[in-house]
Design a protein around this nucleic acid. Structure first.
Length: 954
RNA sequence: GCUGAAGUGGUGGAAUUGGUAGACACGUUGGACUUAAAAUCCAAUGGCCAUUAUGGCCGUGCGGGUUCAAGUCCCGCCUUCAGUACCA
């Protein structure tokens, strides 16, 4: 480590300037970039555009650790590379600054979330700046900024004012729906809507009161109010997210949690299910991510079948993917929550059914899903009628049927479905076989292939495909079913009972929601005294005293003025975390526009994100919702592409390398790793900052760390204490967190950037080990020495040698290919090789060393800028054109051929590249070592691939 | 169970179209410089065997196969990680 000579700087300036003082250099250039607004991007340019985006961070109180910037470094390299390649690059950054942690902190401390958020953002910004990113900070957005969330609220209103027309397959204005109602009622409409819609005529529509009309329209809007189940914790008086519940009780306090129905806003994302699925074909995202989204959307093709219930005026609709097996139905199963359960049960069965329904209600959905093995159910005593045979089919209730999928009821075909089979066996229900020549005595036959249907009337002898088609046809003929496609994707609940989120631009008149006119936005978050739910169980905004809408003055007024004539109560829920992140990528294009979410010009210019980098944990959240909103914005004509990101890369996680010490279970003796065999020891995490590069513990630091280790005794091996190491997720509790601030201070940002890339492929999970950073750090020192010697600059106008040119051009070629393939780790090795070679060649030629700097500058921008300036350039290196690769410097006249015998390389032989196949063979066979290898044998065959290899067989 | 990704030295990893496996680093060992340490530089470093300057055998999770040639292609397994799941 260089000693810190800062305080002597004025006296030793001439000497110091010759050393690689990364701290000073990095500070200097970060200031330069900021002062000169080097990375500010204009919305028009003669250059082609390129949009590189990172997933913006949630600014947590803990700050960044070295795992966080991985994706940002990769995208920054790419953005800088594209600038060298002559693109006008948009590379913005911002903060996803609404969220739960700030609110929980507020509950504990009373600090306003805005205050802690602001402080956290400051830390983030400082940490990001010190890594030397080329972000255009003039475009920063924060989701919690009213100027930004004005537009989140605006999109909400747009969704409210829209319905989905399956005929045109797009979202349309709600007024167009009203026109259709007025002209012909709703019978002909093919829309995404609630499933409890009643058919009405144009006349009936006109006779409805305006409230009735409003209620009906709400069932068609793309965002709508609905009763949905939430995890309600009575003790905390609040709703919990799934991950706040551990083993059925609240994470905070361990209180019980029940399912409760609440009226909440929902987003009709299901309307877009098919387009979200099809759109995946058009984008360059990873297969695993697309597959996750496909699973999540969960398309299945089959039929809906209606069963009439005997002796009741009731019908049961089921969805099945196997209408071809309809003659195999021997019972039906309803989910315990199914609405018919309470209506149809017989007197004798009533008590048993009631007990079963209550028992399952107590179990959480998670419990039910986890416990797959136990078969339970109860008979209702009632029968349905088979649509074709008219045979009575017993109706059962079973918790293996989920109320939330399909219709919450299944037609059970035990011979063709293992769950139905198990249920039938368990309750002694008959298992009729409808497959020709298949043995079903042990298990169900679930395959669709290589089988013909039997015992099935008109389906006899048909295969899966034909039988399915025929069954659907026959169902349609008798009016008891039709072909249907079902999606697992459900509408997304959009209300949160939280404080720190976007307020809805909604007030309530006679219990019906009204939108605040967009021109009055933003509707800003009110002040509250407490961030907890109210005593009556209302969301935190229920604590606000000034939270009513005066529709005449168009402003927020005191709750006391509510008269439900002109002043109305405002919505108390706030929007979920994904609201603010679902269009931010478009807002960056024109972030300060107060008139529009973004101008036509800006979207016309930037179009869509060209490269998006972020974590795969957002596969079915942010990345699905954003695609949904983008498609909606596309339908409304606001954006030009119905997919927001052309290409997406998931960066892997950087894991921590934890360190362990071994304490004897009963004493305070710590044994070195090599001495623990046969001893009863306990593993204790030691902070990774106490460990040197040889896995040896700094015993004094460890003893001073925690009082209970103060008097510990250490049993050493070879005079040192060796720790054990293991790779785990980077986390405070494992004491393996490495802070980028310390790395930047000790080794510099350029070392950090290089090392993060050098660790391995971007997409891969890989362990961090600070010890390894000395490799890239000494590379930077070698690079520096190549340019700057003891007495000054080493670079001159000397003519480049052939070897110099060869090294440079093979480096240009490799680095360019690597960046285009996002293979950043291999270009770091390429730089090392280049610098090693040029150093060995004693290269001083500016013609070589100047372009080399441009190659390195995306990776290590500070040192590149500094040396670039020292070479006499006055502009930033960031826009210097990327060096052109010239093949002619790599042309060789000879090749060192590997000569192998039966596929095994034995020696190499230098031969001219223009030598013919025959000549090569002759030369090789005549060579002394060849004859030694053969030991008198005559080869059966000699394979010669000119320019590649010689293989002698025999 | 299903889906996706991946298994290469002590460690991170490289080998982009089948053609010299282990590039580049870390670590380790030895050496130079130094009062010493740090820094820097040089050399060795997949395993085993032999050792005379030289060489031989094995080796990319396991078992087969295709090929003159397989880390790479094909078939069958095993393991790890991630996502998802009574989805009818």
């Amino acid at each position: 480590m260089c000693c810190n000579t800062t305080k002597f700087a004025p006296y030793f300036k001439e000497i110091l300037v010759m050393r690689y003082e990364f701290n000073k250099i990095e500070e200097k250039w970060q200031k330069y970039w900021s002062d000169h607004q080097t990375f500010k991007t204009e919305n028009n340019s003669d250059k082609p555009k390129y949009y590189v985006l990172d997933m913006f961070p949630y600014p947590s109180g803990a700050g960044l650790h070295v795992g966080h910037p991985l994706g940002y470094i990769a995208s920054d390299i790419y953005a800088r590379y594209k600038r060298h390649k002559g693109f006008n690059v948009l590379h913005p950054q911002g903060y996803d600054s609404f969220g739960l942690p700030a609110e929980q902190y507020a509950i504990q401390t009373g600090q306003h979330p805005a205050v802690t958020t602001e402080a956290n953002i400051k830390t983030y910004r400082r940490q990001l700046d010190q890594i030397g990113f080329s972000f255009d900070w003039s475009r920063e957005v924060r989701t919690s900024d009213p100027k930004y969330y004005k537009w989140t609220q605006w999109i909400f209103i747009q969704l409210f004012e829209s319905w989905y027309n399956y005929n045109s397959d797009k979202a349309e204005e709600i007024v167009s729906l009203v026109k259709i109602f007025e002209a012909e009622g709703n019978a002909t409409i093919n829309a995404a809507c609630d499933d409890d819609i009643e058919i009405f005529t144009a006349e009936e529509w006109k006779d409805y009161s305006s409230e009735q009309q409003e209620e009906i329209l709400l069932k068609y809007r793309l965002t709508y109010l609905a009763e949905t189940e939430v995890n309600w914790c009575p003790a905390l008086g609040t709703v919990l997210a799934n991950d706040e519940i551990i083993n059925g009780v609240s994470e905070r306090g361990g209180h019980s949690v029940i399912r409760k129905k609440m009226t909440q806003w929902s987003m009709r994302i299901s309307a877009y299910a098919e387009r979200l699925l099809q759109g995946l074909e058009t984008i360059d995202w990873t297969d695993s991510l697309k597959e996750s989204q496909r699973n999540w959307i969960g398309k299945s093709v089959g039929a809906s079948v209606t069963f009439n219930v005997k002796d009741y005026d009731a019908k049961i609709d089921v969805f099945t993917t196997r209408p071809d097996t309809i003659f195999g139905v021997s019972f039906m199963t309803l989910a315990p929550e199914h609405e018919l359960v309470s209506k149809i049960t017989t007197q004798e069965q009533k008590a048993e059914v009631k007990a079963y329904v209550e028992a399952t209600a107590k179990r959480s959905e998670r419990d039910r899903m986890a416990d797959v093995k136990t078969i339970s159910g109860v008979f209702t005593g009632v029968y349905a009628e088979h649509p074709f045979t008219k045979v009575p089919v017993p109706i059962w209730i079973g918790d293996y049927v989920l109320a939330s999928y399909g219709t919450g009821a299944v037609m059970a075909v035990p011979c063709g479905d293992q769950r139905d089979y198990d249920f039938a066996k368990h309750f002694n229900i008959p298992i009729p076989n409808i497959f020709d020549g298949v043995d079903i005595s042990e298990e169900a036959f679930a395959s669709k292939d290589n089988v013909k249907i039997g015992n099935s009337d008109f389906l006899d002898g048909l295969n899966y495909k034909k039988a399915t088609k025929r069954a659907i046809y026959e169902l349609e003929q008798i009016g008891q079913g039709q072909g249907k496609t079902n999606y697992r994707l459900r509408d997304a609940v959009f209300s949160r009972q939280r404080y720190w989120g976007e307020p809805f631009p909604v007030y309530y008149k006679n219990g019906l929601p009204q939108m605040i006119d967009a021109k009055h936005l933003p509707l800003t978050l009110p002040e509250v005294e407490k961030y907890l739910p109210t005593e009556t169980g209302e969301p935190p905004l229920g604590n606000a005293k000034v939270w009513a809408w005066d529709s005449l003055k168009a402003e927020v007024v005191s709750n006391e003025l509510i008269d439900n004539e002109n002043v109305f109560p405002l919505e108390l829920n706030t929007m979920p975390g994904w609201a603010g992140s679902s269009q931010y990528f478009n807002r960056y294009m024109d972030p300060h526009n107060d008139e529009k979410i973004f101008s036509k010009d800006s979207i016309n210019y930037w179009q869509q994100v060209d490269l998006y980098i972020g974590g795969s944990e957002h596969a079915t959240g942010h990345l699905l919702y954003s695609r949904f909103w983008q498609k909606f914005m596309f339908d409304k004509g606001y954006v030009l592409h119905d997919e927001f990101a052309k290409k997406l890369i998931n960066q892997g996680m950087i894991l921590g390398t934890s360190a362990f010490v071994y304490r004897n279970k009963n004493t305070n003796k710590f044994y070195s790793k090599g001495l623990i065999d046969g001893k009863d020891v306990q593993l204790i995490h030691a902070d990774v900052s106490f460990i040197n590069s040889s896995d040896e513990l700094d015993i004094d630091a460890f003893k001073n760390w925690r009082p209970d280790f103060k008097d510990a005794e250490f049993i050493l091996e070879d005079g040192v204490y060796k720790v054990g190491r293991d790779v785990e997720k980077m986390s405070k509790s494992k004491y393996n967190v490495v802070n980028p601030d310390e790395i930047c201070e000790q080794y510099g940002a350029d070392s950090l950037r290089l090392y993060e890339m050098f660790l391995g492929p971007l997409e891969q999970y890989k362990p961090w080990n600070t010890a390894g950073i000395t490799g890239v750090h000494s590379f930077l020192k070698k690079l520096w020495k190549l340019y700057v010697g003891q007495d000054g600059l080493n670079v001159n106008d000397a003519e480049a040698s052939k070897d110099n040119l060869k090294t440079l051009h093979k480096t240009i070629k490799k680095v360019e290919e690597d960046i285009e393939n996002f293979s950043f780790n291999t270009s770091v090795s390429t730089f090392m090789i280049a610098v090693n070679e040029l150093t060995a060649q004693k290269c001083t030629s500016k013609d070589i060393l100047e372009p080399l700097l441009i190659l390195i500058s995306p990776y290590a921008p500070h040192i590149a800028e500094e040396l670039w300036e020292r070479l006499g350039n006055s502009d930033s290196i960031s826009t210097a054109p990327f060096p052109k690769f010239d093949e002619s410097h790599l042309v060789e006249s000879s090749k060192n051929y590997p000569i192998s015998f039966n596929g095994k390389m034995r020696f190499t032989l230098e031969l001219p590249l223009d030598m013919s196949k025959e000549e090569i063979e002759k030369t090789v066979m005549a060579y002394k070592k060849t004859q030694e290898q053969l030991q008198g044998r005559t080869p059966k065959k000699v394979i010669v691939v000119p320019g590649k290899i010689v293989n002698i067989v025999g």
